[in-house]
Amino acid sequence: MSAEMANEIKLISGRSHPELSEKIAKRLGIEVARTVSLNYSNQETSFTVGESVRDEDVFIVQSTATGDVNEGLMELLIMISACRTASARRITAVIPNFPYARQDKKDKSRAPISARLVANMLQTAGANHIVTVDLHASQILGFFSVPVDNLYAEPSFLRYIRENFNTEDCVIVSPDAGGAKRATSIADHLNTAFALIHKERPRPNVVGRMVLVGNVEDKIAILVDDMADTCGTLVKAAAVLKENGAKSVLALVTHGILSGNAIETLNSSVLSALVVTNTVPLGDKVQRCPKLRVIDLSPTIAEAIRRTHNGESVSYLFTHAPV
């Protein structure tokens, strides 16, 4: 056996989303590496790896839990740094839900481009490779000088729609102009109709007036977006779709951040279901919201890890969801 073969996958899990890491590890047929992560009494994060990572191919899985984004990010940076000082051969940060992805442009004077800052920070800490899912803007890829694999939840969504609905009854709706590309892509794959809601957004997390472009009458309207935060947009869009004669409305969203009063907003909305992936830890939200459905994305992430490790192409995963 050559020295090259001895190099193995070491899967390290942050504290933000251990369930996802477990699922990925199970999928890969390995164990999550033993680590100790704790906070000192002054809340500084401390991290140590419990087994050797010397010359290993390290994958660090860390999502960012709603409300604890900075905590998760700092922990991730410290984990990367620890593996770097422990002589890992390559460190891949698997960040299903990239933090600060929405602060990606200087939209106002002196606004920080925090997404670029995070990109620089990850590289400074010592990440050699990034794996993420459905980046808010694919331009963020350009903030990195290391390779980034941006996986898509779309194949999983396509399968979900095909398995649960008659595609001829569906119409795919984008809740805003920015997401039109994402929605048309799904509509094209399913060969269904497409509609768009135009909205005026006076401030972040506040929704203005909405106008529907397209026909949803007597159809199952499927809203598609990359993230659901306070859910204000989705719920208002759903109401607009209902007013325009949709039979039922559901939403397919990659990142279920669901902050603030999102659960209450959802429960009292006309949405029949909100389908999210498990990129973000959901905690007890599934119990609190009967409308919430979760698609497991760990097969896709695990396969991406396996292919990255073995030096195989990842392109297949952009169009196919592993079972």
């Binding site: 401390s46 140590t48 940076l77 410290i78 740094s81 620890a82 770097r84 000082t85 400074t124 800490a125």
Partner: peptide
Amino acid sequence: YSRQSKKKPHRGAITARMLANLLDVA
């Protein structure tokens, strides 16, 4: 993180140095 300024026996991070680098990058 000034107390985490050296490598611990068990593959810990030199977090203070990382923070110095992060400040530089920012």
